[in-house]
């Protein structure tokens, strides 16, 4: 699968852009947190597309943001 680029994204309608990003992010997130992957991906998709593209290219950035999402979810569920 070829890398997702900003020009590929720009050619798609806004809602489709998020779906495209989600399709790339989901398998990566699923390998870290299989049970929460759909929820975490949904949370991350609210971030700007340019930042999401950066995360797809930077495993460290993605990993940090996924861990942040898990912490937010756990704090939310503890309420």
């Amino acid at each position: 699968q070829e890398p997702l680029t900003s020009s590929m994204l720009a050619a798609a309608p806004p809602q489709e852009q998020k779906q495209l990003l989600g399709e790339r992010l989901y398998p990566l997130i699923h390998s870290m947190h299989s049970a929460l992957a759909g929820k975490i991906t949904g949370m991350l998709l609210e971030i700007d597309n340019s930042e999401l593209l950066h995360m797809l290219e930077s495993p460290e950035s993605l990993h940090a943001k996924v861990e942040e999402a898990v912490a937010v979810l756990q704090a939310h569920q503890a309420k």
């Binding site: 989600g22 399709e23 759909g38 929820k39 991906t41 942040e68 999402a69």
Partner: peptide, 21 residues
């Protein structure tokens, strides 16, 4: 530092993992 991530965000539904009809 407070996270900007929203725990009430809509869950992502991947096409690739969808059940075939």
């Amino acid at each position: 530092r407070k996270s900007t991530l929203n725990p009430n965000a809509k869950e992502f539904n991947p096409r690739a993992f969808a059940q075939p009809k």
